[in-house]
Write a protein that binds this DNA or RNA. Structure first.
Lengths: 245, 245
DNA sequence: AAAATAGTGTCTTTGAGACAATATCAG
DNA sequence: CTGATATTGTCTCAAAGACACTATTTT
């Protein structure tokens, strides 16, 4: 039924891309890398444009797709155990000018502070951008859209993140532990783009029993807030309802 | 940064697999195909085992991954516009004995009755199996596990379906239109494997305003039930809460 | 004491579970 | 008419929104 021999000759290229989110300056931000500028010797597509971190699977280095995504993320951020979830895959004949290609996209949540701690990893061609600003880019705006179909992948990632924030504890991965409930609520509000009622928020978070207290913290606040840590960093908490309104 | 030239030589194989669900005989069932038996001339892996319908992307036929999944589904069921959603991708060095491969998995919901209408499509090597029975297979059971990592892909598909049934209108795609609310509730109960309160079910379905009445139907029932149709077959309804308990 | 932030209480609303009651149709 | 199925009503409960109130700490 399958024809492996003839198929191998026209096989699509396989890549992995990672959408790395953080919250910085009260905004949802995404890590982008700038593609090499055009030279006489290279034929790299989309020269000089910004793109999601990613590239070809390296069968010699990568045990599987997730490991490949983890490697790309480590190379750009120095972070070893981030929250990393598969987003989806995109494959067609035209997304890469070099021919039929398919990319496996992942999305990751990290604390920007955590990344700053890892010196020497960031290079000049890596930077944070506000997700909403990037999404509004078009060929007519000053800042050009991302390379390949990364504009579309980012759009899907933002929608997925905003959707899951409504009913999961995902935003906790955007903070360093320990964190306070006001800090966590602020992250929720930044990602969702709207305020949440304080009382309802606390009732939900503390009632779900996925946080453990670690003693009061000393922050810039007047009254010392309680610090919390995730009981289980492997899986986010899933609530039975979304926030309403 | 990427090295396309060297990478092409070791590029992973790209395939698409489809998990096709239906409800038949009061059970969630999945469509499987039997792989060719071993002969002296072929080197096909997993000869004689059952597997998810799928195979290599054909760049000459398939505009993109979704089209490829739709083609596989059409070939096995004769159905043109099913519900088809991306499930995820699986890729590593060992899932196919021929080498590093990555598959893009989709899952589809169809009415078994709709498929019976398309004669001549089904072949002897295609059959429905109870999803839960297949999931319980191991190397030690009489029926052997599926080929490749399809056991694992099916597991993920069933979990995803059962999860989404808790808060979406997905089961409607398992029925032919028009359908009645008791029929729809029955499909929900079969997929979830537990009863749902009749009153709460009707309040949720009718309150969400995603169904349109199409007049009372004549069924085997005593009192004639109201028939319904989806207002929008493109996207399922997403409810703000899961069913509880 | 005042200001600012953390945290709690109260009331209302929404929608689900439990389950009883009513409506309609085939025979 | 009767039984089976469809549909509605009532009561209770859980959790969220609105928003006022109390608690703690720094200055």
């Amino acid at each position: 039924m399958n024809s492996p021999h003839t198929a191998i000759l026209v096989m699509p290229q396989t890549t992995v891309d990672v959408v790395i989110f953080t919250v910085l300056d009260d905004a949802l931000q995404v890590l982008l890398v700038q593609r090499a500028h055009a030279t006489a010797r290279t034929t790299e597509p989309y020269p000089g444009l910004w793109a999601l971190p990613g590239g070809f699977v390296n069968p010699a280095l990568d045990h599987d797709l997730l490991a490949c995504a983890g490697r790309k993320l480590l190379e750009k951020t120095g972070i070893v155990s981030p929250y990393l979830e598969q987003l989806g895959s995109w494959g067609n004949a035209t997304r890469d000018p070099r021919g039929w290609s398919a990319t496996h996209a992942y999305f990751s949540l990290i604390s920007a502070a955590e990344m700053r701690l890892t010196k020497g990893v960031n290079t000049a061609d890596v930077a944070w951008f506000q997700a909403d600003e990037v999404l509004q880019r078009s060929p007519h705006t000053p800042e050009k859209p991302l390379a390949f179909d990364h504009q579309h992948i980012l759009q899907t990632a933002v929608e997925r993140l905003r959707s899951k924030v409504e009913y999961t504890s995902l935003p906790a991965y955007l903070l360093l532990e320990p964190f306070t409930l006001p800090q966590l609520q602020h992250i929720y509000e930044v990602v969702l783009g709207r305020p949440i009622d304080k009382s309802a928020f606390r009732t939900r978070m503390l009632g779900a029993n996925f946080l453990s207290e670690v003693g009061t913290l000393t922050t810039t606040a007047r009254r010392s807030p309680m610090g919390y840590r995730l009981k289980n960093r492997e899986y986010p908490m899933v609530f039975a309802r979304t926030f309403i309104r």
